[in-house]
Write a protein that binds this DNA or RNA. Structure first.
Length: 485
DNA sequence: ATGTTC
């Protein structure tokens, strides 16, 4: 295996670096890395660039492989990577979508000023922790029968609306309106369904969280106002995905695809990048199962919104002027999506794999609710625990450069194992509380894994995508309460 | 990320 160094890149700009196909004979498309000098050094500190080069060696891709500034190594493809496979014969790869299918972020706005809510924030944090079950393997309070579960897989957030866990206005402010067509629960294993059914409306563990924030700074007043984001007001973020359900779907298809690789004579640079042609029976089956898991994640985040609204009712009704919680937007950052893009001079239908990358469609995109259409798609970028988060917009630049994609978070610089060894959860918790952030966490070891020191600086990541033109700043959020497994 | 080495 070749070691990669800075000299192997062609510097395109201060924020974009290219590894041309001439770097390695097996490369079929170039790799584009969005980073400044420091973030490029970080990226070279683990296997993520090597993994992106492996991806660029896959058959059935088009254009380039894109790497975001928050990149870190993952299963086969780095987290913070984007690849596009042309229809009908290009490939689909479960590892290039990720184990947490449709992991994503939802942002809620309120008209509650920090000052008026301050006396009740401790109660609110405790109530959120109680109402939103968290932790590995944790089950939820919602009962779903097997038949109803198939319906949930087909309908996503629409299922949640029918069951009374949504307000109608929430749905259009969700990517794909919270329901992806073509989900096929018959392509999902019994085991995945058994794991997923009791977990609807749960938060999970790892880097998943619910966070109460203050809108700290506004950079695009008109867009922020339309989103209901006002400086000094509270907002709420949810970061979670498809729990054991999506994980099992990915596990099942990674195993299944081992034989597909042989059957279709695909040469792999890394076993973890198993894939199948999009138009093969295997590829179509995974697509149907992946969409079911995506709808599960939309439903899951929607039920969490319902639980969050209950907590606001319980702790703030009658105590603040208006305790309504409204949806700003919901994005997916682990997904394969069928889209059309301008690539190599033509309009091409592709399956865009975004793994730890966010769709960032620009102004005029018709899939956006009318009030957002002129601005572009809201992009939600959570920082690491205790640090800022960002609301951005997709741009014409992201459409032209990065298959309509941008970054998804801060990005790890320290492995979970190392963080657990080096950081004491108890001290971290008291540091956060001292800084005015309420912490409700099930596990101190889990807290340590998510310490800010284990992550890159999200402000720097956002600066790169903003200066490179693949996103535009709307607002910065600052945490005041964190709920974790 | 994950019934955290099914």
């Amino acid at each position: 295996m070749t070691t990669i160094a800075k000299r192997d890149f062609r510097k395109v700009s201060d924020y974009l670096w290219e590894i041309p196909t001439s770097f390695r004979s097996e490369m079929r498309v170039p790799v584009w890395v969005y980073a400044d000098d420091e973030l490029l050094e970080d990226a070279l500190g683990d296997a993520s660039i090597q993994q992106a080069i492996n991806v660029a060696c896959l058959p059935g891709l088009i254009g380039k492989v894109v790497v975001m500034p928050d990149v870190h190594q993952g299963y086969g493809m780095p987290i913070g990577g984007v690849m596009a496979a042309p229809l009908p014969h290009g490939i689909i790869s479960p590892g290039a979508v990720g184990y947490d299918i449709n992991c994503g972020v939802r942002l809620l706005s309120t008209s509650i000023e920090f000052g008026e809510a301050e006396p009740y924030l401790s109660d609110l944090a405790t109530s959120l922790y109680r109402n939103c079950p968290s932790g590995v393997g944790e089950k939820g309070s919602i009962r779903v029968s097997p038949d109803e579960f198939d319906q949930l897989c087909r309908e996503g957030a629409e299922w949640a609306l029918k069951r009374g866990y949504a307000q109608a206005e929430d749905l259009p402010r969700t990517e794909e309106s919270g329901r992806i067509d073509g989900a096929d629960p018959t392509k999902v294993s019994r085991r995945a369904k058994d794991r997923g059914r009791p977990q609807v409306g749960t938060l999970g563990a790892g880097n998943h969280f619910i966070e109460v924030d203050i809108v700290d700074a506004v950079f695009h007043p008109e867009a922020a106002e339309t989103m209901g984001l006002k400086e000094g007001h509270l907002a709420v973020q949810i970061h979670c995905g498809s729990r054991g359900f999506g994980h099992q779907v990915c596990t099942d298809y990674v195993a299944d695809f081992q034989s597909a690789v042989k059957k279709y004579n695909i040469t792999l640079p890394d076993r973890e990048l198993v894939c199948a042609p999009l138009d093969s029976p295997e590829g179509k089956d995974y697509l149907g199962a992946m969409k079911a898991a995506a709808n599960y994640a939309f439903a899951n985040r929607q039920v969490l919104v319902h639980h969050i609204r209950r907590s606001f009712d319980e702790t703030l009704a009658g105590k603040v002027k208006d305790h309504d919680v409204r949806q700003v937007y919901d994005i997916a950052h682990n997904m394969g999506k069928i889209e059309e893009h301008d690539i190599d001079g033509g309009r091409v239908a592709v399956c865009v794999h975004r793994k730890g990358a966010t769709r960032a469609f620009g102004p005029g995109f018709e899939g956006l609710p009318p009030e957002y259409r002129a601005f572009g798609q809201p992009v939600l970028v959570p920082g690491s625990m205790g640090t800022a988060s960002w609301v951005l917009l997709g741009t014409e630049g992201s459409m032209a450069q990065s298959f309509g994609s941008t970054c998804h978070g801060a990005g790890r610089v320290m492995s979970r194992t190392k963080a657990k060894k080096e950081i004491r959860g108890e001290k971290l918790k008291s540091d956060l509380e001292r800084d005015g952030i309420k912490v409700r966490a099930g596990s101190l070891a889990g807290l340590a894994e998510e310490a800010p020191q284990a992550y890159k600086d999200v402000d720097r990541v956002v600066e790169v995508v903003s200066r490179a033109g693949i996103a535009r700043k709307v607002a910065r959020l600052r945490p005041i309460a964190v709920i974790k497994g």
